[in-house]
């Protein structure tokens, strides 16, 4: 079973929820994998003592144009949907802007002169870490300066084993990185906070997961702050709330230090135990 922990808004507590569910399952000795899909800014691993098992590069191909063979006809520029090839026909100049290239290979097909070959560039890494004999963390990490984390996210999810429990810590937002993560999940937990920003972004995420026809429920983090907007909307929409976590300075401080809140606070652990059980029941 794959459970994605997601939210449109950043900083609502996705990683907090993902790491605590993972902590509870690994404590129970379940076979569980946590995949940190926030490849732009991965953070989950820092909450655990881990041992690296493997690291692999995520590769993309980019074209190399041989200007001795090139006739500067401009067909590759035509074929490129990403404006990644710059050409000045009269001055016989052609350049590949690697940062804009998506590696689709269209220019290679376009060039009838055989002037284009390809080289490999790294978009980032996927690393696997063990926490104990049954539980592992997979972390996708985009190279700083790369244009998209999506290939790294896809590679990270691919590395996880579908037969066990997989927790996906999703990147924020509602665009491609988020979609790629939640589209591979069987169940989605949307984390929000009871503020106007939280509500606005929650509505966007709900729209998407409904479109995808995925089962989901909502977690309200920092309950007690803000207003009733989120609660009223959830009630009107008949969306279930699977957990509420109150705001308090003590919890924020524990999390800030990179500690698992459930390991320190039995009352919070109890909440996460109940959450984990209820999600697993839906599956079974």
């Amino acid at each position: 079973m794959r459970i994605a922990i997601a939210s449109g808004k950043g900083g609502t507590g996705k990683t907090l929820v993902a790491t605590n569910i993972f902590y509870i399952l690994s404590e129970r000795g379940e076979k569980v994998t946590l995949v940190d899909c926030d490849a732009e800014e991965p953070n989950s691993k820092a909450f655990f003592n881990t041992k690296e098992i493997s690291e692999s590069q995520v590769i993309q191909k980019v074209p190399v144009i041989d200007s001795d063979i090139c006739t500067f006809c401009g067909k590759c520029v035509d074929y490129c949907s990403y404006n990644a090839i710059f050409l000045l026909h009269d001055r016989r100049i052609v350049r590949v802007m690697e940062d804009l290239c998506h590696g689709c290979g269209a220019c290679l097909v376009a060039c009838k002169m055989g002037a284009i070959s390809e080289k490999e560039v790294s978009l980032g890494t996927v690393s696997k870490y063990s926490v104990n004999s049954e539980s592992t963390i997979i972390e996708g990490k985009m190279r700083v300066g790369a244009y998209t984390p999506v290939p790294v996210i896809k590679a990270s999810i691919k590395k996880s084993n579908n037969s066990e429990i997989v927790i996906l810590d999703s990147p924020p937002g509602t665009s491609c990185p988020f979609i790629h993560t939640v589209s591979s999940a069987d169940y989605i937990l949307l984390v929000t906070e009871p503020t106007p920003f939280g509500l606005n972004d929650l509505k966007l995420s709900v729209e998407i997961v409904r479109d995808m026809r995925k089962p989901f429920s909502v977690i309200i983090n920092r309950a007690g702050l803000g207003d009733r907007g989120v609660y009223n909307w959830l009630e009107t929409e008949k969306i279930p709330v699977s957990m509420e976590l109150p705001f308090n300075r003590d919890l924020a401080a524990i999390y800030s230090k990179g500690e698992i809140v459930s390991a320190v606070r039995p009352d919070v652990k109890n909440k996460f135990e109940m959450l984990t059980d209820s999600v697993l029941t839906i599956w079974k």
Binding site: E40, V144, Y147, P172, G173
Partner: peptide, 10 residues
């Protein structure tokens, strides 16, 4: 700006 360090941030 959006969060992250990807294309939208750049």
């Amino acid at each position: 700006s959006p969060p992250g360090i990807g294309c939208a941030v750049i």
